[in-house]
Amino acid sequence: MHYKDNIDYPPMLTRPAVFVPLLVAVFAALCWFQAGDGALGRLVLGLVPGAEGNTLNLATAACVTALVGFNIFVVMRLPLRQQVWLVWAELAALILLFFYSFDLSFAFIQRKIGFLITQGLLTTLYISAVSIFIATLLALMGAIAKLSSNGIAQGIAHFYTSLFRGLPLLMQIYMIYLGLPQLGYVVDAVPTGIAALSLCYGAYMTEIFRAGIESIPKGQWEAARALGMRPVSVMTRIILPQSMRVIIPPTGNQFISMLKDSSLVSVVGVWELMYLARTQGQTEFRHIEMMVTASLIYWLMSIVLELAQKRIETHFNKAATR
């Protein structure tokens, strides 16, 4: 927690009153969902050969519960940071095991992954990066317009956020790709994707930027103005740097979300990651291989964004946390 209580309570999970009922609940849930029927049961069969039905269920539940209990027992004895990393790694391993259980053809993945990255990932990154840049500009302009005393600017900004937050992103892509040609303006697929993503996310981020700017007390504006600073300086040197503390976390969310929503652009035939994942798998009926690969690539990119967000947050928090 950011502001820790100064009293050192014993950690919840080291108390038998919490630990034991927790294990009982895990055991009961596993029995209830008949854990022995599935993959876990097949694993347990190696330990208890010949078990079946209820016996297998109970044996599976007991094994998993024992494993969970032992895991908690070990993890609770580590320092906090190691606890976090270990639990993270364990959960990641479980997810990878889940994917592994699909009986994937790694030879096929190996054959295709190069193309998935050079063509798909690069296109996705290109579309996302350009869209992130334009959306940020749009959001900044939108927020300033909304907070201005100019009726026309306010009207445009309010309509903009209402329309582009209100329509499904897929609809916006179609409107630009199929609608604009009706007026005689043909837009290519990649510019369509960039335009739709920028406009849609710019609209969401307008509200984030507006809230961030509004979170700065009036006295900051007054002090900057009273010193004779020009409006642009007041905004860029005093207000925005302080707003960043409020703006960065939800904006990081938006960027991660945009990265994955860029997959919607595949509907107009852009050869980005999701499009390739679907089409490359089709020829040899290896859909799952490509989907899992694409998913992991998306996840890796999100992790990179998460880490970047964390660094930027620390930077803008440095004055407040000292």
């Binding site: 007054e222 002090a223 005093i238 740097p241 302080q242 407040a320």
Partner: peptide, 10 residues
């Protein structure tokens, strides 16, 4: 000002 209004990020 009464509330100082120093710039907290500087």
């Amino acid at each position: 000002f009464q509330q100082f209004n120093l710039f907290p990020h500087l």
